[in-house]
Amino acid sequence: MGRTTLGKKMGDLSAKSHDAADAAKEKVKAILPGEPGDLHGPSPNPHTNLLIADVALRGSAMLARRVVERGMLGSKYAPQKAKAILKGRTFGETIFHTAIARVATRSVPGAILVGGGLLAKTLYDRSKSSHAARAEGEAELHKMAKKGED
């Protein structure tokens, strides 16, 4: 087979692949109205769309966090006491927990640092007699519940 014949066959294959890509684009345009670049969100303003996405994500994360927290407390405490415990957290505790979570989620070294710290705290709590560690935790939660009921 000569060079010209091979080149011609390659050109035919290339043309067929371009035709298939064009056909796929036409099918997408038929399904989705408007230009593909225009489909970014409910508002034509990209800044507004970013705000909407941010509020939706943060709101759903907050609701999920509350469900998990209540679930963890709800297995041991009455629902009203669990609610009072969560309500009784101080602003400083909330900021501290948020900062730790941010450090853990921003980088791998941060996740290792925070995870290692939590592991060390857990091992420390377990090294104390389980009764003493449990009593200490119960006392803290009781204080938080009292604060939350007030």
Rank of each mutant, 00 (worst) to 15 (best):
S14G: 08
A133Y: 04
L13I: 12
A53E: 08
M72V: 14
A99P: 09
H47D: 01
A20M: 02
P44Q: 09
A24C: 04
A139Q: 10
T90F: 13
H18D: 00
R58V: 04
E26G: 10
A64G: 00
T94A: 00
G41T: 05
L113N: 06
L57W: 13
M144E: 01
A101M: 08
P36M: 05
K128L: 03
A30S: 07
A111M: 08
E93F: 14
H47N: 03
S43V: 06
V114S: 06
R66C: 02
S60A: 09
S130N: 05
N45V: 13
N49D: 12
R58T: 09
G37W: 12
M62W: 03
M72H: 13
A30D: 01
G11K: 15
A56Q: 08
F96D: 08
K9W: 14
A56I: 06
D38G: 11
H97F: 13
S43M: 01
L123V: 14
V103E: 02
G110Y: 10
E26F: 09
L50E: 07
A99V: 14
A132L: 10
G117Y: 10
G88W: 01
L57V: 14
S60N: 11
A84H: 11
L32M: 12
K16A: 06
D54E: 05
A15D: 02
A30Q: 09
E69L: 15
A64F: 01
G117W: 12
